[in-house]
Design a protein around this nucleic acid. Sequence first.
DNA 1: ACGTTAATGTAGCGTTCGCTACAAGAGAAA
DNA 2: TTTCTCTTGTAGCGAACGCTACATTAACGT
Lengths: 171, 171
Amino acid sequence: MENTKTRNKTDTRRAAIVERLAGHVLAHGLVAASLRPLAKAAGTSDRMLLYYFSDKTEIIAATLQHIAERMVILLSARTTPEPLPLGELITHLSSVVLDDQFWPYMCVWLELASRAGRGDPLYAPIAMQIGSGFLAWGEAQLASPDAATRAKDAARLLVTIEGMVLVKAIG
Amino acid sequence: MENTKTRNKTDTRRAAIVERLAGHVLAHGLVAASLRPLAKAAGTSDRMLLYYFSDKTEIIAATLQHIAERMVILLSARTTPEPLPLGELITHLSSVVLDDQFWPYMCVWLELASRAGRGDPLYAPIAMQIGSGFLAWGEAQLASPDAATRAKDAARLLVTIEGMVLVKAIG
DNA sequence: ACGTTAATGTAGCGTTCGCTACAAGAGAAA
DNA sequence: TTTCTCTTGTAGCGAACGCTACATTAACGT
């Protein structure tokens, strides 16, 4: 009992910290995610960050996880419950994804992808998980005649949306 | 005369150094582009890097510039001289761009884009320059009925190719 | 009240970062 | 030869990095 109680307490703290860390990473990017700035953004010290998390990789992993969850929520709040054909879904989704409110998430996503592309052992699995999550979401959102074309359409959706993100990034 | 002679000499050295720096950045990414490792890769010291270049931003700018030139050469060595319709150009170009030999360039390109997306004053203009260069190259390579659709097709080409690159990066 | 454990501050370690001051060697000009 | 500029090595600066040792405070069960 004491064990679970303590556990829940630190877990709650961790969650609160991660919440703030996510804000900082979304605002300034992974490139600015070093312990002392992160700690200041979370309202604590680097010492405490390493008290609640074992090391930096765990901090980053938890933060990215949280950001991904936030993104899913934001995304599903902006989409219709009914499935759409590929073309319409692309136009609708691109307007959502290129929106200013959504852009910080896409910037972090780009950073994540650029690190994953080099096979970074921390970022690669996270990127793959988020990517396949998006793919599944796309499949569920698509109104395609059969499962095979739906899978294909989801892949095309992914490619097109990500392409637009990258093109927007370079201006 | 003495002026131009000296100029040429240091320019030659600079070019030789940049050549090696490009190799290192292609192999290990911008994330590993700090002065001392770069210098070791170039066969000199960090002291000399800052003798031939005024500061790190100039080093990185010159290196990325050189990488972009190499990429253009590699790209035009792999493409047909005659223009192609959009669909064929996409399939052909994607096979080139996703090739292992080309992949390091795409990884650097992703890093560049992720920094440019945040409006970094060093990387944003370079990324934009390379991006619009690729767009122009695409327009020249496309067999489209009129100029308007050619411009549109080039944009679609860019989006699709970059989308594929990003998707490959995340696995 | 007391003792134990959880939570937090302070201070610092060792490393790497971009960059610079200073001086010594090298090569041409006088 | 002497001088003067170009080139290079050595050494180090101050800052930031991830992380840790130690000590102190806060909280709580007994």
